[in-house]
Design a protein around this nucleic acid. Structure first.
Length: 220
DNA sequence: ATCCCGAGGG
DNA sequence: CCCTCTGGAT
C-alpha cells in the first residue's frame, strides 16, 4: 500500500469519527497566536490559556511587548514549562519584530523562523492557521503518529516527515489532517503506551501489526 | 510515572 | 545527533 492510500484510509476514519479537542489555544490576532504557540511547547493548551490573558492585557501588541523587561514578564510565564527560555524568546522576538519587520508579523516560514523562539513547527502553525498556507507543522504527535500509521517512511527528522506528507496530501486537506493527527496522538496514539485497544485504525496500522505479531506467536 | 501542538546550542 | 531548558496535571 502506498503512503497516499494509507492516508486516504486514515482520513476517511477521521472524517467518520471527527475527533475534537477538549481545549484549543485562545487567540484574537496573529500576534496573540504567535505568543500562544511559542508558549505551548511541552505545555497543555489549557495552561497556556490560563496565562495568556494577563500577558495580552499587559502587552496588547508587539510594540508593548518589546518594552517588557525580563523581570516584568517572567512572573506571568512562571507556571509554564521552560519559563526562562520562553521569557527571553518572547522579548527577543518582539525586539526583532519591531526592529526588522516594522512591528508586523511576517507571514512566510523563512522570515518567521528568524525570530527567537520560533522554529519551523511554530512557523508552519502561524502561516497555515492565519494565512491558510498549505504547510504541515510536524510536532511530536504528527511525527510519531504519521510514522506509526505508515504515512511517512524512514523519516528521521520532522523536516523529512513534513516534506513527505506535503508531497501527497492535497493542499486543502493539510490543515485538517494536521489537526486530526495531533488529536489522535494526544488522546489515542500516546508516545509510551498507545491505546491501541481504543484505536479504530488498528486494522491498517503497521505499528500495531508489528506489536501484535510477536505476541501471537509466543502467546498461548 | 507519563504526558503536554519545541527550540537553541554544543 | 545529542543535550538542556523545566512546571503542572493526571
Amino acid at each position: 500500500m502506498t503512503r497516499k492510500e494509507r492516508y486516504q484510509q486514515v482520513l476517511a476514519y477521521f472524517q467518520e469519527h471527527n475527533p475534537t479537542a477538549e481545549t484549543e489555544l485562545i487567540y484574537d490576532s496573529p500576534y496573540q497566536l504567535l505568543v500562544a504557540v511559542v508558549l505551548s511547547a511541552q505545555c497543555t493548551d489549557k495552561r497556556v490559556n490560563m496565562t495568556t490573558p494577563a500577558i495580552f492585557a499587559k502587552y496588547p501588541d508587539v510594540q508593548t511587548l518589546a518594552t517588557a523587561t525580563f523581570d516584568e514578564l517572567f512572573p506571568l510565564i512562571r507556571s509554564i514549562s521552560y519559563p526562562n527560555n520562553k521569557t527571553k524568546h518572547l522579548i527577543g522576538m518582539a525586539h526583532m519584530l519591531v526592529n526588522d519587520f516594522g512591528g508586523e508579523i511576517p507571514m512566510t516560514v523563512e522570515e518567521l523562523v528568524k525570530l527567537p523562539g520560533v522554529g519551523r513547527k511554530t512557523a508552519n502553525v502561524i502561516t497555515s492557521v492565519i494565512d491558510e498556507q498549505p504547510n504541515m507543522a510536524v510536532d511530536t504527535h504528527v511525527f510519531r503518529v504519521a510514522a506509526r500509521l505508515g504515512l511517512t517512511r524512514n523519516a528521521t527528522t520532522p523536516l523529512a516527515a513534513e516534506k513527505q506528507l506535503v508531497q501527497y496530501i492535497p493542499k486543502e486537506q493539510i490543515h485538517i489532517a494536521h489537526h486530526w493527527l495531533i488529536l489522535h496522538g494526544r488522546y489515542i496514539c500516546l508516545a509510551r503506551s498507545p491505546k491501541c485497544g481504543e484505536c479504530g485504525l488498528r486494522a491498517i496500522c503497521p505499528y500495531y501489526k508489528k506489536k501484535i505479531k510477536p505476541l501471537e506467536k509466543s502467546g498461548s
